[in-house]
Design a protein around this nucleic acid. Structure first.
Lengths: 199, 199
DNA sequence: CAAAATATGTCAACATGACTGACATAAATA
DNA sequence: TATTTATGTCAGTCATGTTGACATATTTTG
């Protein structure tokens, strides 16, 4: 009941047998749903940022993600990348192979464990990574600059807390590689048995 | 310079011809990059929430998105859905057809404009929508509950500001259908020529 | 040291969900 | 009446995800 669509007259007058009562049954969580949608819209536009550049070289968003993480975490192992992206080996192999073949990424055996193939961006890869990152960084910079330091921390805390419990250690460990301090509550104990970290 | 990977000994000693200097050349925007990654990880886990339920009925995330928006905005027009999802008609048609055929969604001609096919969830569709929403709502609720009212507004403002300029009106107009007030700065003027709103 | 475990790569086959571009219909509008 | 609009549909293609099996090199373990 109660009509919603200010837009097109809605309120199915006839043949409303099985349609729902227009207004959000979700009423109770209306505010949360709205926030979820803002999150969705933000991500939708965020991921679109690199598309033009990618299209020019025949790459997709999967390539973008790979090159981003390899660029930001040089020496990343394949297993770590898989854990970050949460896709299958085969899925990664396809895009990674292209990136390696086309000289955006190189692989080097680890020194301690020579089974590992540590990933690095080449000069060419760095240039691409930088180009792809530009619009996304701008987007985030504009948004974050409208916030106070304290507010920025709030956002950071919020985003971190949205991450699946079991994945937070991995994220912390990953980011620690670039000198980042842990996040609030989580980093109290644990820190070993991560799916990301080495052995 | 400066070594990064605490993990596996990195620092490519030999054959480091074209690999990059390990540490983030991105140094300047290190903090922004980290925030972007948190955003990515949060979204990654958020979207995974419905997977089990979806798998049981042979649906994918595309179905989830469609049923979510139709459920939350009963009477949605196809054109609005296309504008929300930013995919092509054919892409939408495929999943929408399945949802209609399998009685999760029904279509009714608009009263004013009978060319329109207003979308509504059926009883069955509502149940599915509710089930799919549950884990995501829980995720957001937990996170948002850790914040003060003021902090919640900060997060909302931040997410909204991440949305592409040209798309913000559409989002506002869409959400207004469920009685939501505009967001901060943006809603000063404009409000007509939206890609979403009716004629 | 031999056996088991690990890190990675690869192959074949397949599913989902995007895309393009063309064309059709019904209904609203100029 | 002619045009535009909202929607649907067809054919074909591509990007990216999946499974499961198997191969190789290397490290770790009993």
């Amino acid at each position: 009941m109660t009509d919603i669509n200010t837009k097109s007259t809605d309120s199915p007058t006839e043949n409303d047998e099985e349609t729902t009562s227009p207004v959000s049954l979700s009423g109770k969580h209306e505010h949360i749903l709205t926030l979820m949608e803002l999150f969705y819209f933000a991500y939708r536009d965020f991921t679109g940022d690199g598309d033009e550049v990618l299209a020019k070289i025949g790459y997709g968003r999967a390539h973008h993600r790979v090159i981003h993480f390899v660029h930001h975490y040089p020496g990343l192992r394949v297993a770590e990348l898989l854990s970050i992206l949460k896709i299958t080996k085969q899925s990664l192999a396809r895009v990674l192979k292209q990136l390696v073949d086309e000289d955006y990424i190189t692989q080097k055996p680890g020194q301690q464990d020579r089974r590992e193939r540590l990933l690095y961006t080449t000069q060419k890869g760095q240039e691409l990574a930088t180009q792809l990152a530009k619009p996304q960084i701008n987007r985030f910079e504009h948004s974050i600059n409208q916030l106070s330091k304290k507010e920025q921390e709030t956002v950071e805390k919020f985003l971190f807390s949205l991450i699946q419990q079991g994945n937070r250690h991995d994220v912390i460990n990953l980011m620690a590689q670039n000198g980042h301090e842990p996040y609030s509550d989580i980093s109290k104990k644990h820190s070993s048995k991560s799916a990301l970290k080495k052995k």
